[in-house]
Design a protein around this nucleic acid. Structure first.
Ligand SMILES: [Mn+2]
Ligand SMILES: [Mn+2]
Ligand SMILES: [Zn+2]
Ligand SMILES: [Zn+2]
Lengths: 148, 148
DNA sequence: ATTATAATTGAAAATGATTATCAATATCTA
DNA sequence: TAGATATTGATAATCATTTTCAATTATAAT
């Protein structure tokens, strides 16, 4: 349980309670580097925690997203996918997405170069269009090995 | 009607018929630079063409996307938005997206630099992960002037 | 021009992901 | 420990998009 105490604190700051479903969902997310759908999570948790509600999973993921603990990615196949943000600074990455099956691959090649460009662009755009920019996506779309 | 004949030909090549709904939808898309939802289109067309079905709009947009005539963008607010691809080479652009209201702003600043990096990254990733890459997205997310 | 074929349309119903409701329960604070 | 209130899970509701299917229309062949 990597950041368990940090998580608890983050929750308390926001008047959120530390509950079993939340702990179990965070634990699952921290055990994988994959990008999971709500249903993926529901399925994985079922053996350890039958009775957990899909609704709770959606609510928890939304909360974690609001607290900035997870990334939420739209793979274009209709469902959202979630992955835990790692505290590790060098973890920033971008995505390669299969538009057929929704698979998401993290990549870190050239990310440093991309980030420099992103920073420059972001500043210019924020000013020019009066946007409060909070995030960016760089993603390549196509068909994965299995789906092509 | 900018590319009307090109469109007709593109349709014929694909055993697709040139119909009134398709012409009207393309005409509408070619009159604006905005990114429209299926419902936006349905609403705009209603006066000129009452009786058009929302289903037909979805089907046509999907077809246009398959033929490579429109961009399909997921603004993260649940609906997809569509914009006609311009034949003009210099039209390539990336997006600034409001996560609250779904507004999409095209930007062309720094796009040249971005494209060089994109090209390099795309080649490396395609080889490394055995993906057939067909497209890319570079988007900045945040709140627009009205929504912040 | 007429006809035959197959693509297209639109209404209605179905789907599938996500959200809202609400009574029961669990967590936290004092 | 007890009370205040945040959270849960079952259920129903939304909402965008798809599917079905009989009627209509565009195109190719006569
Ligand atoms: Mn990722
Ligand atoms: Mn655009
Ligand atoms: Zn795939
Ligand atoms: Zn906005």
């Amino acid at each position: 349980m990597p950041g368990r105490y940090q998580w608890q604190n983050r929750f308390r700051e926001n008047v959120c309670r530390w509950t079993v479903p939340r702990e179990v969902i965070l634990a699952l997310l921290s055990r994988t580097t994959e990008h999971l759908t709500a249903k993926d999570i529901y399925g994985s948790l079922y053996s350890m925690y039958p009775g957990i509600g899909l609704t709770t999973i959606y609510r928890t993921l939304e909360l974690l997203h609001r607290l900035g603990l997870v990334h939420k990615v739209a793979a274009g196949d209709g469902q959202s996918r979630y992955a835990l943000k790692r505290e590790d600074k060098g973890d920033h990455h971008h995505h390669l997405i299969c538009t057929k099956c929704g698979k998401i691959v993290d990549y870190r090649d050239f990310v440093q170069e991309e980030l420099e460009l992103v920073k420059k662009t972001e500043e210019a755009l924020a000013k020019k269009h009066n946007f409060a920019i909070t995030d960016h996506n760089i993603e390549f779309l196509g068909l994965c090995e299995k789906c092509r």
